[in-house]
Amino acid sequence: MAIEKSEAIILRTLNFRDTSKILTAYTLDHGLVSLIAKGVRGPKPRFGSALEIFAHVDLVYYNKDSRDLQLLSQASLLEAHLGLASNLDRYRHACAVLEFLLKLLSGQEPPGKLYPLALRTLEVLEKAPVASLGSLFLAFQIKAVSFLGHRPELFSCISCRESLTEPVYFAPLHGGTVCDNCVVEVDGTRTITQSQLGFLQRLMKSTLAELFEDVPSSEFMADTRGIFELFLASQLDRYEPSRSLRQIPNRHALGLREALKAGDPLGN
C-alpha cells in the first residue's frame, strides 16, 4: 500500500452508509481515482467543502492497485468554485464538463494537458459572461478530445492535405474537413459553412478567455454543435450527448414559468 498525494478535481460524490462518502476524483498525477472518505459526514463533518463536486483540492490517500476504492486520508480545499452553483446556466455547463470527463477518462491517465484544461474551464465557467458559456463548453470539448488523440482536422483537406477553399465539407467519420475536389471520394460528408468552420477553428486556436466575446446566435450555436456532436459520436466509443445540457433547463425563467403553466415537462 502506497501513500499518494495529488491535487485533484472532484467529479462525483455519493453518500455512503451513515457517515461516509464515495468520491470520483480526477487527479493530476494518476487520472481518475475512486475514493472512500470514511466518517466525513455526520455530526462532526470533516474536510468541509473539499469533498463536493467542482472542488479543486489537495488529496492524500492510501493506494492499493488491487482495490477499486482507495482510502482517503486528507483533503484540503484549494478552490470550491462556489460560483458554479449560483447560476443555473453556469451549473449546467460545469456539470457538462464533469460529465464529459467521466465519460472520456478511463482510469490511470498519465499527467497531461487535459487536467489543466479541465481546471481552467471550471474557473472560466464561473466568471465568463453567461452568453459565452456555450462557446466555452464547445471549446473545452474540442481541446479535450485533441489532447486525447482525436484532434479534428479543421485547416486542410483530410484527403489531399491541400488548404481549403469554398465550398468545404466535413466528414465526421474521417475526423475533419474535405475539399470540393475530394468530396466524391469520401463517405459521410456534409456541408459546413465558412462561418461555422471559422467558429470551430477559433474555438480550437483561442484561449478560453479570448472567447468571452464570442457569442453566436443560439441557432448558429445549435447547428455548429450538431456538426461537432457527429464528430464526437464517430470518434469516441462511449460518447453520448450531454445529459447536463439536456436535463437542466436553460430557458429564461419566464419561459420556464410559462412551460409550467402549459403543463410541459420541465427541462426538455
Partner: peptide, 18 residues
C-alpha cells in the same frame, strides 16, 4: 449547502419569482 443543493435553490427561487 453543496453545489446541487445551491443550484436547486437558485432554480426554485427563479420559478417562484412570479
Amino acid at each position: 449547502p453543496n453545489p446541487p443543493g445551491e443550484a436547486t435553490a437558485y432554480f426554485l427561487s427563479d420559478l417562484l419569482q412570479e
